[in-house]
Design a binder for these strands. Sequence first.
DNA 1: CCTGTTTCTGACCGTCTGGTCAAACAATTC
DNA 2: GAATTGTTTGACCAGACGGTCAGAAACAGG
Lengths: 218, 218
Amino acid sequence: MTKPRRQTRIQQRNRRAILDAALAEFSNAGFAGATLDAIALAAGLSKPNLLYYFPSKEAIYLDLLSALMSMWLDPLLALDADGEPIEEIVAYALRKLRMSRDFPRESRLFANEIVSGAPRFAARIEGELKNLVDDKAALIAQWQDQGLLAAMEPRHLIFSIWAVTQHYADFDAQVRGILAPHGNAHFDEAERFVETFYRHALAPEAGAPAMPAPAARN
Amino acid sequence: MTKPRRQTRIQQRNRRAILDAALAEFSNAGFAGATLDAIALAAGLSKPNLLYYFPSKEAIYLDLLSALMSMWLDPLLALDADGEPIEEIVAYALRKLRMSRDFPRESRLFANEIVSGAPRFAARIEGELKNLVDDKAALIAQWQDQGLLAAMEPRHLIFSIWAVTQHYADFDAQVRGILAPHGNAHFDEAERFVETFYRHALAPEAGAPAMPAPAARN
DNA sequence: CCTGTTTCTGACCGTCTGGTCAAACAATTC
DNA sequence: GAATTGTTTGACCAGACGGTCAGAAACAGG
């Protein structure tokens, strides 16, 4: 039991290569559409060798989901109760947007999983993700009660931020088909849009400073 | 050549059953994940019989895409240049939201296709869809120049409406995991959110009536 | 060098999948 | 009721796919 040395350098390199290749494959083809042969090829390994590092296709997929979960949650986690509400939410939306630009494969992996009914992900959605959203929704509701934000259902506001920002990664093919951009230039446009849009949408009514919002039914 | 009678009653019934079953399968599993056996089973036919009506799996898929294309475009098409701008756009968003509620399979079919890079759909995106968006984006820009709408890039505004409304169909599993709703009750909440959100976000600045918008760079 | 361990591979297997086909069955027409 | 046309099926096929396995390399340490 001396010197555990859990992973050799070769293991580290190959596992990394496999996960990277798998991310590319799964995010483009979904779980069903991706093949071990394609992943092995992209990783520069033979298929049996790939299965030397991971016991099955599903194990690779689940490993990816787990590894990316925190990256997925981080931007929302950073929403700061002590910050200025509108700035905090706008900054959150911009963080998510930049993740769509910088990590589109990760976004599409989750998108594929969830569009297909999240068969291997439901537990985590109803667990970690739901808890985090509940927390932050309460924070937003509090800000609204203080008249610092326009009144609107906080969870749906969060959904809208996810939807709008992830749209640029998940529906990249459509966005590019319509904007016909060069490279990632359209992301600058998107940043300006997201910032002005949410800043405007979140601003409380001028003459309603510290009153409970009109449509607060819950 | 007398009495063409293109489709018998049996043909009509079976083709309909196949397309319906295929929509269910493709929207849940994507093109790769869906199987002819599953479609045939759901349609109440044997696999060879299914292939008597359609030449191939891809033919069924393409038939579906074509048939659903106009349903997809209609809500945007109905955006009326003679209407009141904010009401028109809010009504458009609500139409799209109700489509997510009433036709989630159709929405997920497109979502699956586009998330996977739209391999069988790119032509239509760059054709019909792009043209329609260009048209309506010009109309929105015109409204903005008249000071009737807050200034923001029209195409990205349209994207945001697609993203927010389709989110409820495409990411249904996630929405349900977080809201834990009974049936479709959360769609009422979503309707209220979408309406107030866009009404607020689109309202022009109080003191900027008929001036070209500040960030109009294009 | 030898030895034990880690890494890698070719050959193989059972299953599933999209698709074919000849023939049976049903419906319609004359 | 015979002939024609339209519909359905069981049996089958070739290829792809996830996964196994025995053993060959490559790599370590002594």
